[in-house]
Simulated assay, not measured.
Amino acid sequence: MSLTDQIQRTLPSLPAAEQRVAQALLADPRAALARTVAELAAQARVSNPTVVRFCRSLGFAGWADFKLKLAGNLGQGLPYVHQSVAPGDGSRAVVDKIVEQVQQTLADFRQQAGLRPLEQASQALVRTIRAGRRIEFYGVGNSGIVAQDAQHKFFRMGCHTAAYADGHLQVMGATLLLPEDCVVVFSNSGRSRDLLDATELAHQQKATTVAITASGSPLAAAADIHIAADHPESYEEYSPMVSRLLHLVIVDILATEVALQLGPDLPARLHALKRNLRAKRYRNE
């Protein structure tokens, strides 16, 4: 049964306000994919929490989780490439569709981001840095590239860091962790066996584990701190584009929060790095 069929079947049993949400969705499901919670609530003439309650009535964690399922049901996009782009699209359409989806995903994250997990993660990272201990970043596939980007940003701040995209190295690294260490794990789906194994090992070592992944996933449940990275992109059918960019933005947020907490010594250290790196550039004639 498709999601739209499920909504139709559930409609009579929903409270009146949630029925208006359902009717707004059924009127144009594809248009709903581009809307935020606030925009859909305004269209249905209900409050933002009513939209979230509607999603939960259908068994979803929230609006982002619901949109992910809806996008998969509608079967839009070019399989294994991008969710919004269709065969026959020209360059103008490709640019517009990809940029619009990125903008919408980041706008949704800005509106729905859980500030408490971000604060907890940045505080855990700062504690590790001040203790002179180790921060490790894990990811596989495209998430491994994000882990490398995170390692680079924190390395620049003078932290003891490592990034592993290989499952065997992740197991080795997690086994050698100590209680004051911290591990940040990136995953689009939150269902990678390698990452779950490494997170469990890090937990056994009493290191702090931070997962940047989808809500309701096994990895989200396994970590000490979960930063929700929800988006409408189906990880089963499309190449991770929007999800990768969302993860990179979260890395930037954490790195900035950590830099602010580390205090006035950090800018001087970064200035010294920039000064020494200038020697690696060709000078203008």
Rank of each mutant, 00 (worst) to 15 (best):
M1Y: 09
L3P: 01
T4W: 09
R9M: 09
R9Q: 12
T10E: 12
T10R: 14
P15T: 09
A16G: 00
E18I: 04
V21E: 04
V21C: 12
A22E: 01
Q23T: 07
A27G: 04
D28N: 15
R35E: 12
V37L: 06
A44T: 08
N48V: 14
T50D: 12
F54T: 02
F54D: 04
C55N: 10
C55D: 08
R56C: 04
G62S: 09
G62P: 08
F66Y: 09
K69L: 09
L78N: 04
V81W: 06
P87V: 03
G88Y: 03
V94A: 00
I98Y: 05
T105G: 12
T105Y: 07
R110I: 07
Q112V: 13
A113K: 09
P117L: 07
Q120N: 13
A121V: 06
S122T: 11
A124E: 07
R130M: 09
A131E: 10
I135R: 04
G144C: 07
V146M: 10
D149N: 14
M157H: 10
T161H: 00
D166G: 03
Q170A: 01
L176Q: 08
L177C: 06
D181Q: 04
S187M: 07
R191H: 08
R193C: 04
D194P: 02
E200W: 11
L201Y: 07
A221I: 02
A223K: 00
I225H: 02
I227W: 00
E233K: 00
S239R: 02
M241E: 05
V251M: 07
Q261L: 00
L262R: 14
P264F: 00
P267T: 07
R278K: 15
K280N: 12
Y282W: 11
N284H: 14
